[in-house]
Amino acid sequence: MDHIEHLEHTESPANMKSQIWRTFWVLLALTLVDIVLYFVLLSSHSIAKNILFVFLGIVKAFYIVSVFMHMKFERKFLVWIIIAPMIFVCFLIWLALTEAGYTFGMRLF
């Protein structure tokens, strides 16, 4: 006997396929921008350069999560359950990098 389940899910838009390909081109373009910037800024070791690359990484992450992982079509409640706890990661980054500055000083002397 075949058992057909009823499934609860949020619908995808009708133009999903074109959204997927558009996202692919965006990700490809952003990666190419990464590579070009890498060679242009090869000899610089500034914090601004690091922030720029992290920013581009976050933009890519946004596209992957929203379209590929279907997040932008889910209910807001689910979106916040997943995104809001990331504030702790931000805190950890701030904490670790601040402490690293002190450890760096102790390593020197």
Binding site: S44, H45, I93, A96, E99, A100, T103, R107
Partner: peptide, 16 residues
């Protein structure tokens, strides 16, 4: 973050 921490405790790389 552990990578970032450890990296920041070392002297940065020389320009090539």
């Amino acid at each position: 973050v552990a990578y970032g921490f450890v990296r920041f405790t070392f002297t940065g790389s020389l320009p090539n």
